[in-house]
């Protein structure tokens, strides 16, 4: 009998629950592509299906980036820093850097990766607002979701963005110069611990268990899918031209072939063995009852410390699986669910 790497790990549980019940912080520096110039907004509007040009200075927008087949190349947050300057926050800069370069013909823009210059600390949880109010010179009382503004923290210039990857109502991202990271982290660390919170150190918590519990994706989940299959089509601006639009219109017309659904492992045997794509590989095949046809693959399998259940996603054939369906995956009892375990 082996232990469950999530359920039985009190270290992970305590870090996860600090965010849900109090406040947690962690280094969450992403790769940053800076796009500037007179055509920066028009360019990003072309490479992103969601509306970017209308974004006001000081605001952010989550969007996918698609290839010509309508497949998701990346999912990013675009931040409009100035009238003609944007940051694109990604974890796939190796691809996006080239992608921007090869699609920039006809646009008066400059693109460069500025990852090395910045660090970002994510402060998440119910008490994160109190922590930031105590730390930031101007406070965050009136800072609304997906808005950012410059401030000072520990005497250092920072950019504070309200947002995060946890599904928490209150969560903030503090960007600082790489050289100032030690001072900024020390200040955040002290304030978070004084508030009863802790540093979240486990990758599996800040990248997998917290986001999955809220129904968010890590880029690997979206690999070779299109927005309709993973529920990211809602904010697409169909009135503009963008890369992948033609293919996506056909998918819209015909309907997606697959869909991402949630599931939980019900089996009492905690030593279950179900492989998921998050570690690489194809993921466990999913069959319905005794039918021979494979209807999907397990994309992700982690743990909801709020609901105390192993939870994850299945990329399945459209309409093959419905909420409440019970099935066996690799011999273990599972049930199909929604994708948000915080509701």
């Amino acid at each position: 009998m082996y232990k469950n790497i999530f359920k039985d790990d009190e270290w992970k549980r305590s870090e996860h629950m600090a965010v849900r019940e109090c406040v947690g912080y962690y280094l969450f520096t992403h790769q940053l592509m800076e796009v500037s110039g007179p055509d920066a907004g028009r360019f990003l509007d072309y490479v992103c299906p969601n509306d970017i040009a209308s974004l006001e200075v000081g605001r952010d927008r989550y969007t996918t980036i698609l290839n010509e087949e309508g497949e998701i190349v990346d999912d990013v947050v675009v931040m409009r820093l100035e009238e003609e300057k944007y940051w694109v926050s990604t974890l796939y800069a190796t691809k996006i850097d080239d992608w921007f370069y090869f699609h920039s013909d006809g646009f008066d823009i400059d693109t460069c990766e500025v990852t090395e210059d910045w660090h970002m600390f994510s402060v998440q949880g119910p008490k994160s607002k109190d922590v930031l109010n105590a730390l930031a010179a101007n406070g965050v009382e009136d800072l609304k979701f997906f808005r950012h503004r410059p401030d000072t923290l520990a005497g250092k210039d920072v950019l504070i963005n309200r947002g995060g990857f946890t599904g928490e109502k209150f969560g903030y991202e503090v960007y600082c110069a790489a050289d100032d990271a030690d001072d900024v982290q020390d200040a955040i660390d002290r304030a978070v611990k004084e508030a009863g919170g802790k540093e979240v150190t486990e990758f599996q918590v800040f990248a997998w268990t917290l986001p999955t519990e809220a129904g968010f994706y890590y880029m690997r989940d979206l690999n070779r899918t299109n927005p309709f299959e993973v529920g990211l089509e809602k904010n697409i601006n169909w009135d503009k031209d963008f890369i992948g639009k033609e293919a996506l219109l056909k998918i819209k017309e015909n309907g997606p072939a697959r869909e991402m659904v949630g599931f939980e492992v019900c089996d009492e045997n905690q030593d279950f063995y179900i492989r998921a794509k998050q570690y690489g590989g194809p993921g466990e095949p999913v069959f319905i009852d005794s039918e021979e046809e494979e209807v999907g693959r397990v994309s992700k399998l982690v743990y909801s410390y709020v609901k105390n259940v192993n939870n994850g996603y299945i990329l399945a054939k459209k309409d093959a699986l419905h909420i409440g369906d019970r099935l066996k995956i690799h011999g273990y009892d599972c049930v199909i669910t929604g994708k948000n375990w915080l509701k």
Binding site: L91, Y92, M219, R220, N223, R224, Y279, G280, P282
Partner: peptide
């Protein structure tokens, strides 16, 4: 290896999307 397996799309893809 994954790069020779149909169910992997004949691609090696690891946990953070290296392909």
């Amino acid at each position: 290896s994954m790069m020779f397996r149909e169910e992997c799309g004949y691609r090696f893809v690891n946990g953070t999307n290296t392909e």
